[in-house]
Amino acid sequence: MSKETTSATFGFFGVVAALLAVLLTLYGQGTGEALRVLFDRSSLLLTGSSNFSGFGGGFSANVIISVLSMAIALVCGFFLGGAMVSPNAMVRSVAVVFMNLLRSSPWLVVLYAMLYLLPFNVSIFGHHIFVSPFLKAVIGLSFPVTAYIAEAFRNGIHAVPDGQWESARALGYRRGQILRLIILPQAFPLMLPNLMTTYAMLFIGTSLVVVTGTSDVLSIGKTVIASDGDDYAAAVYLYILLLFFLFAYPLATWTRALERSLSKGK
């Protein structure tokens, strides 16, 4: 095993063991009982349904929210990032200011704002669309993430040597073509680790959607605590920590591996 694999494996099992150790310390004799409660509630916490009969709630809601938000933010972020490298100084500075404003807002504030700002119903061409808390969470999270993606996009483009622009221009390419055909294919691999880190951050940030009233894993955790008793609160939160860790850690390891192969390739 390579050194990196060893340390990633160590981190993975180390954290899982640490969480178990905390559980044991907290519950002592009652650990078995606590584990039984967690086992019984697993379906609810993971899928939002009581017997794995469906999904869209609980931890699966967090995953879905993160994927949808990321998709929206990728599209918006590429446009905003494109504006940030625009040859028009006016467009560029407006985009940069906008990016900075988005980036510096606390996610919780944005989510609260979405909660109250977005109407409950939108009518488009006579169709009434219900804007659920779920949708609000998706839209709210995509705002700050758009800023991070725009910045990653700009940095990626700046990372491509200027000579590439010059030589492409000398060959008669137009600006749009250069960006699309020459710069982006080179910039994308450079941006990838950054985008993945952003996604990991977004995924971890989905814990905040609890304030929008979505049936995410934390909301369900609270319901479970309310029905099974405060005594199991610590166990439930440990379980949720574990769920997030199991998803986020492999992603982080993969990102690091990508970064390493990138820096080696240079």
Partner: peptide
């Protein structure tokens, strides 16, 4: 220390706080 870093960096600060 390494376990602590791996745990805290890969889980939501909100859940850490609630826990």
């Amino acid at each position: 220390t390494i376990i602590m870093i791996d745990l805290f960096r890969n889980t939501p600060p909100l859940v850490q706080l609630l826990f």
